[in-house]
Amino acid sequence: MNRILPYPVLSAALGVTWLLLNAPPTPGSILLALMVGLAVPHVMRALRPRAVRVRAPGLLARLAVIVLYDMVRSNIDVARIILGLRRGERRTGFVAIPLDLREPFGLAVLSIILTATPGTLWVQYDSDTGRLLMHVLDYTDGDAWIRRVKDRYERPLMEIFA
């Protein structure tokens, strides 16, 4: 997209936000939403953000469903840990994960995913080596956590933001 719509996703998001804040939509607010959506991204052009390219929207929707499921499940897991309903010994620890994902948007989404699922916490990421340090509330030996992050989240993200 060129001169008129430099960042179509940003334009759409701004327009929808405007309409949601000024609901119910009237002809006037729709006109203003269109103007905001068309004008503000031109200001952003001075900052030169990189354009988002979503390659696989279907995969994005599937990832969203997976994350939603994981969010509910890990919420219940962490709630059980806090309330002391879980038997057996529990260990916590740090896990270092070598990431192949380099795309900034992909990393941002991965950080949102890992934060949205309680029980995993993004501590540090080194952009030179691509290693991510994560704290997990329910530590298991071996590479179960590494495989879970890499297979479940990183691979779809690499395809989406390829």
């Binding site: 919420n75 962490v78 709630a79 806090i82 309680p118």
Partner: peptide, 9 residues
């Protein structure tokens, strides 16, 4: 990890 419970679900 605890406050994320309130912030998400």
């Amino acid at each position: 990890h605890a406050p994320t419970l309130g912030a998400t679900l």
